[in-house]
Design a protein around this nucleic acid. Sequence first.
DNA 1: GAGATCCTTCCGCTGGGCGAAAGTCCAGTG
DNA 2: CACTGGACTTTCGCCCAGCGGAAGGATCTC
Lengths: 248, 248
Amino acid sequence: MAGNTSAPGVTVTSRVLALLGAFDEHHRALTLTDLARRAGVPVPTAHRLVAELVAGGALARRPSGEYVVGRRLWDVGLLAPVEIGLRRVAEPFLHDIHAATRATVHLAVRDGSEVLYLERMRGRASVPVVSQIGSTLPMHCTGVGKVLLAHAPDEVQRQVLQSLQRVTRYTVTQPGLLQQQLEGVRRDGVATTSEEMTLGACSVAVPVMRDDEVVAAIGVVVRSLKRDRAGLVAALQVAAQGIGRSLG
Amino acid sequence: MAGNTSAPGVTVTSRVLALLGAFDEHHRALTLTDLARRAGVPVPTAHRLVAELVAGGALARRPSGEYVVGRRLWDVGLLAPVEIGLRRVAEPFLHDIHAATRATVHLAVRDGSEVLYLERMRGRASVPVVSQIGSTLPMHCTGVGKVLLAHAPDEVQRQVLQSLQRVTRYTVTQPGLLQQQLEGVRRDGVATTSEEMTLGACSVAVPVMRDDEVVAAIGVVVRSLKRDRAGLVAALQVAAQGIGRSLG
DNA sequence: GAGATCCTTCCGCTGGGCGAAAGTCCAGTG
DNA sequence: CACTGGACTTTCGCCCAGCGGAAGGATCTC
């Protein structure tokens, strides 16, 4: 407890969490000044708190002076049961798809109005892939995202459809066109993208159902859908059904 | 700052880290009282700090009243660059082994006097596997562990060899015998176990070299090594060499 | 119904935590 | 090589955030 603070009522715990929250996938290494700024705490305060986090292994300081998330948080973070049942059940099926297609394979769920990637098995081919486990990407321009959006509550669809950000020049940004695509996804049970998220990368995805509800999406990322689109869809659907059955 | 504390000098940050550190792979869900006990803080203090961690998403409280690690720590933990270069380079090779063998595949490094599992790709066969990503297991009774132990500094080998815990009735607990096995591992470049860690599970592992130094081990877990031991070893060695080359 | 355990709330006490200011260090620039 | 700017470190008077024993409520078990 400090007194003499510029922010009465802000606790040490909340400052610690703010400092840890300063890191994200675009900011994996931060200087002390950056950390303080992003966490909204004065530099000397950040300096003291960060030193304790380093001592406890929650953060680590590189020779360059930048801080990164430490091993202790890696350990603890792995214990978080984020969709653990789904991930455990899906893993063998994802391996099957990966072995059969050699493409990047995804398992994702809806996270508000974005897609959260739970598993990513990178393929061997040099197709650019921006996702990683734990990352969130937009729903309107990813295969798994379109699947999850097509089956999202009306309110989520409305929210997403009214702010369609362009990511590449192929990104669908007209609400009407995307709406039509989502109807097609609901009808056919398959979503595709063509360089809408990343140039040089196309994707195809299908829903994972449990009790008539879409709980996740699985998909692959390839250079082109022209070759063997039907085979990819078949493999994904077989795996999705296997996962759905195993979820009980 | 608080005053009026039973533990002068103990900071809020260190208490927070102690609470988070109360979780481990054998304690993934904890009651408030358990948390307080394991963190060494009085229950009302734990109550207050835990409530803040829950509010910040670092912990989550289940309907049963038990606490688990929350989504925010999963997010932050994933940002920790724990052997990230090695894991990234190794991933495709591990997929190759997995596709070829259908067995559980491991990538591990030495962590003091234990093995730290960086990757685990579960196989389809019902071979019991106790490892998981982020877990540490003993070196003397796991395949990857024997590889890493064989190439560990003398001090580490001495330390491990003088306290060999029995895990199953097949665990090697005589230092002399293990020493001979380690010599064989250094000579042949392969380590094996037979139900030494888990009944019903055998393993085979090889080292990953970079600049004549063992930086990791990869291995597979199977029901029996009697079938196709040579094939498993060949696949592992090819992959290990690929990883080593890619590490530069 | 009693007992044990867990969880929640209270509140007087107090020193942990606060951050502006000053100083040090280092990289970049002219 | 000297100077500048920015990052980082240290100081220390101030003060209220945090402390936890005690008490009470809730729940589970026998």
